[in-house]
């Protein structure tokens, strides 16, 4: 089976000597919803830039659906749709014109371009704004406009660089739903995000990149099994004056009606609840203190910080 994206030994050193990518290997299967995570400056946007030709690689190979970008970038680009991090459309053009023009760049005949533009503007809730100049749109609408523009030639691989940054919760959820639908319809999606809840909710595979190196590349499910400790917050019906006596579990009282407990991988929540029952503590709700993927992400990046990693070369 041909991979949607296959990267081997990808390096990028900028003109100022900064080594952004230090030999990345990455394989994204067709149909995946793939998260590319990493702290700021880790190399996510550089990787995306290389894939879509905005950044020239220093070495390595990149194949899109089996097509080597060095051999036939024009054909490879037909398969790719990109939603960049920054707004990068002409602010003075109308919404409809921006999308239909992009379709033209991919060689779509006018009639088909107009049909596709209407289809995606409707799906993304922008049809009513089709005659509005782009600069008049809200931030969330501008993000959706970039998604419509990226989809108008119906790419097999959609790359989104932080598509929900600065977007309100309702809009974020509707964008997630839209992306899940097009992924279910067969589009492979690569997503970079700082919202790890987003990656955990949407993606089936994840790679974590730090200082130009892939430090983890696996399925979300497998990655979460590596989590040794989870911190749960419990809310109680009655007020507590001290942290409950639950030997073997570390934790602390947060306020009179809630406390947090660290649960190790080999410990059971059943035991914990039995102890609560013994002490007549009535738990009304419980939740993870932070996103599970976030805890793993932090631990992976922090462990990387302590080891020697590539960065600026002299």
């Amino acid at each position: 089976m041909i991979s949607a994206l296959s990267i081997l030994g990808l390096t990028k050193t900028y003109a100022n000597g900064f080594r952004a990518l230090a030999g990345i290997d990455l394989d994204v299967a067709e149909g995946d919803f793939f998260a590319l995570l990493g702290p700021n400056g880790a190399g996510k946007s550089t990787t995306i830039g290389v894939i879509c030709s905005l950044v020239r690689k220093t070495s390595g190979t990149v194949k899109v659906f089996g097509i080597d970008i060095d051999a036939d970038f024009s054909r490879a680009k037909q398969y790719i749709g990109v939603v960049p991090q920054e707004f990068n459309f002409n602010q003075f053009e109308k919404v409809f014109d921006i999308v239909v023009t992009q379709a033209g760049y991919y060689g779509l005949p006018k009639k088909l371009a107009c049909e596709r533009t209407e289809k995606y503007l409707r799906q993304l809730g922008l049809w009513d704004k089709r005659d509005t100049r782009a600069r008049m749109l809200s931030g969330g609408m501008k993000r959706r406009l970039m998604i419509a523009r990226a989809l108008v030639h119906e790419p097999k691989l959609l790359i989104l660089d932080e598509p929900t940054a600065g977007v309100d919760i309702e809009l974020r959820r509707s964008t997630w739903k839209f992306l899940q639908d097009i992924n279910a319809a067969g589009t492979t999606i690569i997503l970079t995000t700082h919202y790890l809840e987003e990656a955990e909710s949407l993606c089936n595979k994840v790679a974590i990149i730090d200082r130009g190196v892939i430090v983890e590349n696996t399925s979300i499910q497998h990655l979460l099994t590596k989590l040794d400790t989870e911190v749960f917050v419990f809310d109680t019906r009655e007020e507590l004056t001290a942290f409950p006596d639950i030997s073997g579990y570390a934790g602390k009282l947060l306020n009179g009606y809630s406390f947090e407990v660290q649960v190790q991988k080999n410990q059971s929540l059943n035991v914990l609840f039995a102890r609560f029952a013994e002490q007549d503590i009535h738990v009304t709700s419980m939740r993870n203190k932070s996103n599970r993927l976030e805890e793993l992400f932090v631990s992976l990046v922090e462990s990387g910080n302590s080891a020697e990693k590539p960065g600026v070369t002299s």
Binding site: S53, L54, F73, K77, P84, F87, N88, N90, Q102
Partner: peptide, 16 residues
């Protein structure tokens, strides 16, 4: 103007 607004990327990422 296209460079300044970043919209030149629309062309550069396309197969044109």
């Amino acid at each position: 103007g296209n460079k300044f607004q970043g919209s030149i990327d629309e062309l550069l990422v396309s197969p044109v």
